[in-house]
């Protein structure tokens, strides 16, 4: 049985989808991920879908579901690396993935997650790091 690996990285969970998702795989991913969030008390979930070239309404819903589920378990979800064609398809299907954050690539997604966690945990410091240029 195929499974999508879920990697733990500090407070975050990392999911990189490298193959085309079929329905069973997607529902498994959903339940595995929620379990992992519970077990590891993760604060953020990063899903990389840069290799995903085909998406249907079911897959879009699963992504949205993961976002909403993580949200009520106090974890932020970031979907990164969406292909232009996938984005257009999802919009045409009327799925705007309101519950999830998005970023261009993994790097920017990680930054975004850290920012979200930081603003959640402690009030932002007044001492911004000075840019010395």
């Amino acid at each position: 049985m195929d499974r999508i690996p879920i990697l733990r990285m500090g407070k975050f969970l990392l999911v990189t989808i490298q193959i085309d998702l079929y329905d069973r795989l997607a529902t498994n991913l959903e339940s595995d991920l929620v379990q992992m969030v519970n077990k590891t008390e993760a604060k953020g979930v990063l899903i990389d879908i840069s290799a995903l070239s085909i998406v249907d309404s079911f897959m879009g819903r699963i992504l949205g579901n993961i976002g909403s589920m993580s949200k009520i378990m106090d974890a932020e979800t970031v979907v990164v690396g969406m292909q232009p064609a996938v984005a257009i398809t999802l919009i045409e299907l009327g799925l705007e993935l309101k519950g999830v954050h998005t970023a261009l690539n993994v790097e920017k997604g990680m930054e975004l997650l850290k920012e979200k966690i930081a603003s959640d945990e402690e009030p932002p410091d007044e001492t911004d790091e000075d840019s010395t240029e």
């Binding site: 979907v79 690396g81 969406m82 984005a87 919009i91 998005t102 261009l104 997604g109």
Partner: peptide, 12 residues
């Protein structure tokens, strides 16, 4: 609105 939503999905 569609264009804006699609850009958001891309992470921009």
């Amino acid at each position: 609105i569609k264009t804006v939503a699609a850009t958001r999905l891309m992470g921009a």
